[in-house]
Computed example of a mutant assay.
Amino acid sequence: MAKHRRRDRRFRFALAAVIAAAASVPVVAAAMPSTSARPDIVGGTEASVRDYPYAVFLTDKSGNQFCGGVIVSPTAVATAAHCAKAVARTDLRVVAGRQDKRTNDGKVVSVRDVWIPSSFSDPGKGDDVAVLKLSQSLPYRTVNLPGDDSLYAEGTKATVLGWGRTADGGARSDVLRSAVVPVVSDDGCRSSYSNYDSRSMVCAGYPQGEIDACQGDSGGPLVVGDTLIGIVSWGDGCARPGKPGVYTRVITYADEIRSEADPSRRVFW
């Protein structure tokens, strides 16, 4: 249980920063976006939104970035459930087509509705996925959703994207960055986390750590090529040896994501 509380702190800290900023309370530098470009994802390099046009970030109504997301249809973005619940829907904004957060590039849209599985309660218990239904269409290429389990094979090289922190307590990046991490087997992930659920979760990372998603990357995409296999969810710290990042296993929710993103695809019995 002590380990679970430590993992919880990873996503709650991002929420605390948003709440404090919205209330105009001074926040230490570690809780706010940095004023100069730094790496985000631990061990990552700068990436281009031209290569990953479906990568987006989430802000509150004051423009404070706190999570990531991924475009799954012109009018819908997938993210983590804990990100969707962090800010009131009316205050939630999706920023697309903006590589550098210091610019006004791209498009900012509000959210008209949110889908979250009724079973979600905590990232450590799974079902950490949400679909944000947008008030306007986005003119950017969408990500592909997986059709089978083949991309979840152990050792598959996947790319995680985000604007999050460099390390636990570090500053966030002003620019989109990426890192390549291998998919970890279910047995390997279960040996790192006793609450690992192979139905709703997938792990990715190196045994020695060093490269990983971090706070502020939650909700962002883990892709193989242009296919979304994971959504940044939780972990024990960032880039620690023997503690890979844990992602929502997208294939489990692919049909629901498609249905919520495009109601015309729904099948009624």
Rank of each mutant, 00 (worst) to 15 (best):
residue 20 A to F: 05
residue 201 M to W: 04
residue 188 G to H: 06
residue 21 A to F: 01
residue 139 P to H: 06
residue 24 S to Y: 07
residue 88 A to L: 13
residue 77 V to F: 01
residue 265 R to L: 15
residue 145 L to N: 10
residue 58 L to V: 02
residue 18 V to M: 03
residue 206 Y to H: 10
residue 100 D to T: 01
residue 167 A to H: 11
residue 51 D to P: 02
residue 5 R to S: 13
residue 113 D to P: 06
residue 183 V to I: 15
residue 129 V to R: 01
residue 137 S to W: 00
residue 125 K to A: 12
residue 81 A to H: 02
residue 249 R to G: 00
residue 195 N to D: 14
residue 141 R to T: 15
residue 232 V to K: 05
residue 159 T to C: 00
residue 58 L to Y: 03
residue 135 S to I: 09
residue 28 V to Y: 09
residue 14 A to G: 12
residue 135 S to Y: 06
residue 224 V to A: 03
residue 225 G to E: 02
residue 128 D to W: 03
residue 233 S to E: 08
residue 257 I to D: 10
residue 262 D to W: 02
residue 169 G to S: 09
residue 154 E to V: 05
residue 157 K to D: 11
residue 251 I to D: 10
residue 174 D to C: 02
residue 21 A to L: 01
residue 217 D to K: 14
residue 150 S to R: 14
residue 80 A to P: 01
residue 243 K to R: 15
residue 268 F to K: 12
residue 37 A to R: 07
residue 36 S to K: 12
residue 190 R to H: 13
residue 265 R to C: 01
residue 25 V to N: 11
residue 24 S to N: 15
residue 157 K to C: 02
residue 206 Y to E: 10
residue 39 P to W: 00
residue 97 G to I: 00
residue 266 R to D: 06
residue 4 H to E: 14
residue 128 D to V: 05
residue 221 P to A: 05
residue 242 G to C: 03
residue 179 A to P: 08
residue 245 G to M: 08
residue 12 R to P: 00
residue 159 T to Y: 01
residue 219 G to H: 03
residue 47 A to F: 06
residue 93 R to M: 04
residue 158 A to D: 06
residue 180 V to T: 13
residue 178 S to F: 04
residue 54 Y to F: 14
residue 80 A to D: 04
residue 19 I to F: 02
residue 174 D to G: 08
residue 76 A to D: 09
residue 143 V to P: 04
residue 99 Q to K: 15
residue 225 G to V: 01
residue 255 D to R: 12
residue 216 G to L: 14
residue 267 V to E: 14
residue 79 T to H: 02
residue 208 Q to E: 15
residue 82 H to I: 04
residue 133 K to H: 06
residue 110 S to P: 00
residue 42 V to M: 12
residue 157 K to R: 14
